[in-house]
Nucleic acid binder design. Structure first.
Lengths: 118, 118
DNA sequence: GCTATACTGAACCATATGGTACAGTATAGC
DNA sequence: GCTATACTGTACCATATGGTTCAGTATAGC
């Protein structure tokens, strides 16, 4: 069964629910970046961007490392495997459920035909 | 490229970021349920559960239909296909990025060996 | 050592979220 | 028609979110 009470999912799906943060992940997928660079790219104050990075970091989707004055942001060590698995499992249940409904509809149609031919 | 500025994702990932709502989706995957039944199962007031159902409905993950006094909640017509696709695409980029890093590490190791043998 | 850059922290703001209570409306069933 | 049930709507509350400003601190580079 799909596990739903999981703070990890709260954090990661929550992190993904914001367009800026999805954008940051995309950016980091092509190259590491400093907070300043990200703030400029997404037209936001440094402080604002730092908060977003904090959210991503707490969700384990981003790592950061400070060298000198510059904090460099990189992709985290986890790559949404578990979240992908949750969704896939859900999709499985979802499609089973709809197949089931299809079967019921089919059954009803057959019964109808049987009645007609009486 | 992964598309990040998408209100659909805001809504669906936001909906998935709450344990109760993930639980409701699970429940509905096995059987339709009324608001009252869901509220009881998740130990919450009717009003509270109705809000959660509203969030899921706005995200397109749940449909509801009122017959008589009872509003029945069912799985929505979309089954997180797009969200699964977003995550898969991201995971692709993520693993490419890590392969790239692996290559760089390999290269550095080779250079080191070359220096050692001098 | 001075100055510019890069971040950090605290305070603030508006709005959203996750919950409640309580009063109302509509329907099911005797 | 009365009563219980099932929802609906509004108001309220505490806390979180997404942003800002402003005042620090620390480092890079001349």
């Amino acid at each position: 069964m799909v596990q739903y009470s999981n703070p990890q999912y709260d954090a990661s799906f929550g992190a993904l629910s914001d367009a800026t943060r999805r954008g940051v992940l995309e950016q980091l997928a092509s190259a590491d970046a400093s907070i300043t660079a990200l703030a400029e790219k997404f037209q936001m104050t440094l402080t604002g961007m730092k908060k977003h990075v904090g959210v991503l970091e707490r969700a384990g989707l981003v790592r950061t490392e400070k060298v000198g004055r510059v904090r460099t942001c990189k992709l985290g060590l986890r790559g949404l495997e578990q979240e992908a698995a949750w969704i896939e499992e859900y999709r499985q249940l979802w499609s089973e459920r709809f197949e089931e409904l299809d079967n019921i509809v089919e059954e009803l149609k057959l019964k109808e035909k049987a009645n007609e031919s009486k």
